[in-house]
């Protein structure tokens, strides 16, 4: 009679195992003392020590962080502006077209985006050289521009959906009380959508940090990001120091997600409690 829950629980367990056993085994093997990544040879933290003395890895990590910070910030600013325009400026000419243009990269295969961006950069670089004799190289700037382009789409989508749920009357009320449109934006709209802006930024940061495909098209000599480095190392075989690097990444990302979740749920719970108290007080 209790068969259903047992069946469901085992499916759940299997699903979770499928997700997390690979990650757990990677973490375990990052503490492996052996040279082979998949054979246990005792506990050791030597791969971590090796990782932190590896300039190539540190340099790649620093480049990735710089690109992610810059592209996430720019994409958030532009994406917020686009999201507001799409959600609030009602009937402007070419709105549907603009909306399509912004969301198209969401479904565009990354390889296509990568190739087209590469061609675009080559064209620009040729033009700059022909016009000003200015020799340019692909690297930080081109990768950042490419990352802005695709993370912009995600930020726009988040902002747009947040604004669609928000009561437009709140903005009208501010205008009714004497605020000009830019003041309404500053006092009302931006504070209300600030959680969406923050999550948009985090998403843009994350997808920039772990992008391989588009980065590999737009990078140049000497500009190796962390995911590209891992990718190229793995081609020579999985070594324990890659495990260590991946473990650190998982920990950093996991910690961020946990902190964000705790903060958000705490704020939510406090709001519910306040609301309950208010109703009880007024009965």
């Amino acid at each position: 009679m209790n068969r259903r829950p047992v069946f469901l629980m085992s499916v759940l367990a299997f699903g979770f195992a499928f997700f997390y056993v690979p990650i757990l085994s990677m973490i375990v093997f990052s503490f492996n003392n052996a040279r082979l990544a998949t054979v246990w040879g005792g506990f050791s933290t030597k791969w971590y020590a090796k990782l932190f003395s590896n300039d190539q890895v540190l340099e790649a990590a620093w480049l990735s962080v710089r690109i992610a910070l810059t592209s996430a910030t720019v994409a958030t600013i532009l994406g917020t502006m686009a999201g507001i325009a799409l959600a609030r400026f009602k009937r402007f000419r070419g709105r549907t077209f603009f909306s399509g243009l912004v969301t198209a990269p969401l479904i565009m295969p990354e390889v296509i985006t990568g190739i087209s961006t590469l061609i675009f950069f080559i064209l620009i670089s040729n033009l700059l050289e022909a016009a000003f004799g200015w020799k340019t190289q692909r690297g930080f700037t081109t990768i950042t521009i490419a990352h802005i382009t695709f993370s912009l789409t995600f930020v726009t989508a988040i902002i747009q959906s947040r604004l669609r749920d928000a009561d437009i009357a709140v903005e009208e009320a501010a205008m009714d009380l004497g605020s000009r449109p830019w003041q309404v934006m500053k006092d009302i709209t931006l504070p209300i959508i600030s959680p969406a802006i923050l999550s948009g930024w985090l998403l843009a940061f994350t997808i920039s940090l772990d992008d391989v495909v588009i980065t590999s098209f737009t990078t140049g000599p000497g500009s190796t990001t962390l995911p590209i480095l891992i990718w190229s190392k793995v081609k020579l075989g999985v070594t324990p120091d890659i495990n260590a690097l991946a473990t650190i990444t998982v920990c950093v990302v996991g910690l961020g997600v946990i902190i964000a979740g705790v903060v958000l749920s705490r704020a939510e719970r406090r709001r519910d409690l306040d609301a309950q108290m208010a109703y009880r007080a007024n009965e």
């Binding site: 009561d167 009357a169 709140v170 009208e172 009320a173 501010a174 205008m175 009714d176 009380l177 004497g178 605020s179 000009r180 006092d187 009302i188 504070p191 209300i192």
Partner: peptide, 27 residues
């Protein structure tokens, strides 16, 4: 709207959720 000697009370009340009662009234 912002230059009219008119104010409106909205059906949804449209209170500013991130401001206290006092700040709402004083906005």
């Amino acid at each position: 709207a912002y230059d009219r000697p008119v104010n409106m009370m909205f059906q949804s009340y449209a209170l500013f959720p991130h401001m206290s009662v006092e700040k709402n009234v004083g906005y």
